[in-house]
Nucleic acid binder design. Structure first.
Lengths: 210, 210
DNA sequence: AACATCACAGTCAAGGCTGACTGTTTCCCT
DNA sequence: AGGGAAACAGTCAGCCTTGACTGTGATGTT
């Protein structure tokens, strides 16, 4: 009985959850590919390969769907961030602390080229004129921001994170990277060769000097 | 004859140009109010108070219209920048150079709250998935960027602009301000009380120290 | 076992948006 | 002065998008 239920119970709640996730993943994919205005319910429905009824059963309107997508994406971005930390921390520690700082800056900068970042930007931009999306994003991005800041401290390591100007550096890096990446919307180029990279590394040396 | 022409000649070319400008201004206004996806040809036509024929005579398609709006806006932003410089330079020079730096930073930060900035962001975001817009923006924003950087040197004044790290500060300020302002899409608050303001001023003191 | 409900499937009407098309006036050129 | 073209005005068909609506099978409950 119990064993039967353990396999069958999944069908109802879990199956529904799967559909939801599939649609939301599709929504994010559409945001990345076609932007906010290109992410119509039909396009998302097609990308998710679900029927219209299925999509509208889970999300009664386009707004509700994209609002949920915003939430969904924020959660995913927190997970991505954690994963990124692991990659840095597990790496064999560089001899010099500033070499480590360089590495962290490069890794952090990479995260601003990832598709998920652009999906977020689409939703941020949409939020400016859509208060429903803004209302969902506000608390969610606050959580994400806190997670990112905590991650940065771990990535840089205690020694650097305890320097007096660490928080200043952290905030300057995050905002400057976001602002820099915005130019990539119309000017695609290799992020790894961005001139700002050296500036950021230099800034870290300056602000974290003993 | 000549006097007659001088008054009448305007009608043809100038009147056409007026229409163009009126439609483009309306397009920018719509971008600010309703975002990219909210700026339909009908909405713009209504905002500009022109007939459909008039709008489509000047801009045969929505894409062409928004591409032209991008160009139009970039030109306007250069003019805004110049105006901003005048305001700073004409001001009675503060005693301390760093007080002047503070003033410039405040003025610069104000420009990131202006409606025109948000219209640009709408177009930047649209450009990511619309290569036509991107192709127009690329050279235009390059020009605008150069104008802004030149303006900044004038605003800070020769003494500060000749310091070795001035360019680094300039680029960090521009990108960090852009990145900071993006959060205002979902979290409206008073820009004059943004915590980053003090960070930027402090950074200026640090990077421009003699 | 019967009944209720969930989780869809598939169709459809209403409205919005775009761009084409035709008609009209005003200006410029010769 | 008169032909032609630019600069509109206004209408309309066609497509896309949305969300409502009806039907159906599987699931869970009593």
């Amino acid at each position: 009985m119990t064993s039967e239920r353990s396999t069958t119970t999944r069908t109802r709640a879990q199956r529904s959850q799967d559909s939801r996730a599939r649609i939301l993943d599709a929504a994010v994919a559409c945001l990345i590919e076609g932007g906010y205005s290109g992410s119509t319910t039909l396009v998302i429905q097609s990308e998710a390969a679900v029927s219209r009824g299925r999509l509208l059963h889970h999300f009664p309107s386009r707004d509700r769907l994209l609002v949920a997508a915003a939430q969904h994406l924020a959660v995913k971005r927190v997970a991505d961030t954690e994963e990124r930390v692991r990659r840095v921390v597990e790496q064999n520690p560089p001899a010099d602390v500033f070499e480590r700082a360089d590495l962290v800056i490069e890794l952090l900068w990479e995260s601003f080229s990832e598709p998920h970042f652009w999906a977020s930007i689409e939703l941020w931009t949409a939020a400016r004129v859509n208060s429903e999306i803004a209302d969902v994003l506000r608390p969610e991005e606050k959580r994400l921001g806190a997670a990112i800041r905590a991650s940065m401290a771990r990535m840089f390591g205690d020694e650097l994170a305890s320097r007096p100007r660490f928080k200043q550096l952290r905030d300057l890096l995050l905002t400057s990277m976001r602002g820099t990446s915005m130019t990539y919307t119309f000017d695609r180029r290799d992020p790894r060769e961005d001139a700002m990279l050296d500036q950021w590394k230099d800034l870290a040396r300056l602000l974290l000097a003993p």
